[in-house]
Write a protein that binds this DNA or RNA. Structure first.
Lengths: 202, 202
DNA sequence: CACATACGATACGGATCCGTTCCGTATCGT
DNA sequence: ACGATACGGAACGGATCCGTATCGTATGTG
């Protein structure tokens, strides 16, 4: 995948080793520019190099081109998985729903919309996207299954649809600002409660 | 907004009138290129002109630049509102949920993802987006309110959250292909039923 | 017919970016 | 010290696109 072998195990290297600072600066510059609103194709190697305080050659020495660099940079955004407490199904779901589109890196939320077109066009990017979200999906699936086992949720609950039900509202609001009338802060709670109780009168 | 005055009421026009075919061809070429996967900024006036079989000057005679042309072209995608039958609340919701991200123009579904970054960056585009979806939101809101009036839905239902609950899953699946395990065809039904009944055991 | 304007086509100068190549310098192993 | 490699910086040829201008031609009005 990556052409980055600069930091790998290389017992012998005749000349000057590659700068770790440069590696870091290039990746950081890439993410910064994306977070500032640059779309993927508006992003230029020259801009990245300037922002990183690095020569273009230094970038091309490490990556084959923009795509390879981008894949490496985006991997950095994966972040850590949230940790459900395991006591209350509802609270665990609220935690997971609140974590949708959230990461340790605050730039992630701003970068995500810029990737939507790419995800649909490039199989590599789609794969990367699925790699990032599938552990989170798995986590939510386990909480739901636990809910069924504990008898809190109905046994015939469709897990995949339920996950889309929990994730969708959060995602369209964070990525699209779908409705100006929704409060992003308490949305996770409201979504989870609505999904749990349903809206049919009874 | 638009510089298109070619077809407007112009009682006197000394020279040769503007070609209506050119107007149409330019708009169609723009939508075609977007539907084929070109993102907004990858879209070039030159490509549009070539595709439309038109000189660049013919485009610049009508629009000030790419942005103005795009706004006019996207307005074409608005499509017609779905018409709820008004009998069953559930069936009306299934219809509306199924219409999320759907239009008379089949290109709309492919174009939408390309617009996500622009919607977050350009106030004009965000406004256009809201103008397109707000009538549909209103329609759904009315159906939900009818449900409350008829006693089918609980009186304390939060309409805005419910609409996000119904729309979100459809949108992330159509735009992002969020989960490979979801069937887009019966998703509207499943979503509506899940939202109606909830998943809590009782 | 004369006139005004639009048409498609082509060319232009300017800008941006690509990926490569070359500087002179810096930093490693031997 | 020396060879090897990396560094930041600068320049390159080629490509694409912008927005404008200018062809000769087509199509309207009076």
């Amino acid at each position: 995948m990556s052409d980055m072998r600069s930091t790998a195990d290389a017992p012998r290297s005749p000349g000057r080793p590659r700068s770790l600072r440069a590696d870091e600066a290039i990746i950081e510059a890439t993410l910064d520019l994306l977070a500032e609103g640059s779309t993927i194709e508006a992003l230029s190697i020259e801009a990245i190099a300037t922002r990183a305080g690095v020569g273009k050659a230094t970038i091309y020495r490490r990556w084959a081109g923009k795509d390879a660099l981008l894949l490496d940079a985006l991997r950095r955004l994966k972040g850590v998985l949230p940790q459900p407490a395991g006591h209350s199904i509802r609270d665990d779901l609220v935690l997971l729903v609140g974590a949708v589109g959230q990461n340790v890196d605050p730039r992630a939320a701003k970068i995500m919309p810029c990737l939507v077109p790419a995800v649909n066009r490039s199989p590599d990017q789609y794969q990367l996207y699925q790699n990032i979200i599938s552990p989170r999906r798995q986590l939510m699936r386990e909480v739901l299954r636990r809910g069924i086992d504990e008898g809190v949720l109905r046994a015939d609950t469709d897990l995949e649809v339920t996950m889309a039900l929990l994730t969708g509202p959060m995602l369209i609001q964070r990525v699209l600002q779908w409705s100006p009338d929704l409060n992003e802060v308490n949305l996770p709670e409201r979504v989870v409660d609505a999904v749990l109780e349903g809206i049919r009168a009874r």
